[in-house]
Amino acid sequence: MQSVKTKLFGFLFPPSTDTWLAVLRVGLGLQVTIYSLSLRSDWISLLSGTARKVAEALLSLESHFVPRLGWFVASAAQLGIHEEAVLFLAWACLLAVGCGLVVGVASRFLAIAGWFLHLCAAKSGSFVSYGMDNFLTIGLFYLMLSPLPDRYSLDWRLRKSQPKNPQLLGFWRRVLQLHLCVVYFFSGLTKCLGSGWWDGSNVWRALIRPPFNVIDPEILVRWKYLFPVAGIFIFVLEFGYPVFIWNTRTRKIWLPSVCAMHVVIAVAMGMYLFSLVMIVLNLAAFGTGLFARTKQIRLQPETASA
């Protein structure tokens, strides 16, 4: 029993450096920045008016406590501030948060602010949010709970912060790793339940379906014999992720393959933001130190004995 407990704690609290956290912070900072910039001209039209009110009303049927832009709009209205001004301010704050996270200034505060603002936008715009928003919420949720700042941040240099508990750093990395395993396992499982992924027709449909039809179908159809291979390859890659990502040798194949799959999704389907967040999460969880020489991690005296 004792050995099981020791093994469990050893697995869940492995000593880790904060490099993965730096990757997560910079990556999500970039993601938030690009997300904000890409929607700058449509932000207000997507999140204002009746659609936002309906989305928030439906959200209230679930819970009254989930953050939403309507809270700010209602408060500002009492001060005579128009909805559009509030939405623009939220957008500007989100952009500033993204830039701040990239350089690592006030990391903890900005991680919380980023999670909160993005959550407000994603929930108030639930009719226009998609998978990318889900993964951005997940990433920002873990980022704000992780032991920030990391040593590559501006905070570290300015405040001369002390190293964080390596086991706590390892724990939060483990949480992200386990979550990604569940994500890919279920994504692969549900895909392999559809006959279209076995015969490749789903690959074809995914690539020609508006608005993902970036590549001319006339070009795509020449490669139709590869679709069944691609379909099976995709769900095997996802379904096998929780098994093959843990071993260092197989991870050297699996991780680049998964990242390559997301690059192809970005290029062939125009889902740049979705692919970027997935690559960031994968690199933070399993990427750091993969191809570097194994280094000994110096533990703090109190954590080394724990």
Binding site: L59, E62, S63, H64, F65, V66, P67, L119, K123, G131, N134, F135, L136, T137, I138, F141, V182, V183, Y184, F186, S187, T190, K191, L193, G194, S195, G196, W197, N202, R205, A206, R209, P210
Partner: peptide, 26 residues
């Protein structure tokens, strides 16, 4: 409500069956 709030703020309110089991037409 507490459970619904938690799953929403953690971003875990939905599963991960994107484009599955089959790709809808839209």
């Amino acid at each position: 409500e507490a459970l619904a709030t938690y799953v929403q703020v953690a971003g875990v309110e939905a599963g991960y069956g994107y484009f599955a089991p089959n790709v809808p037409g839209g």
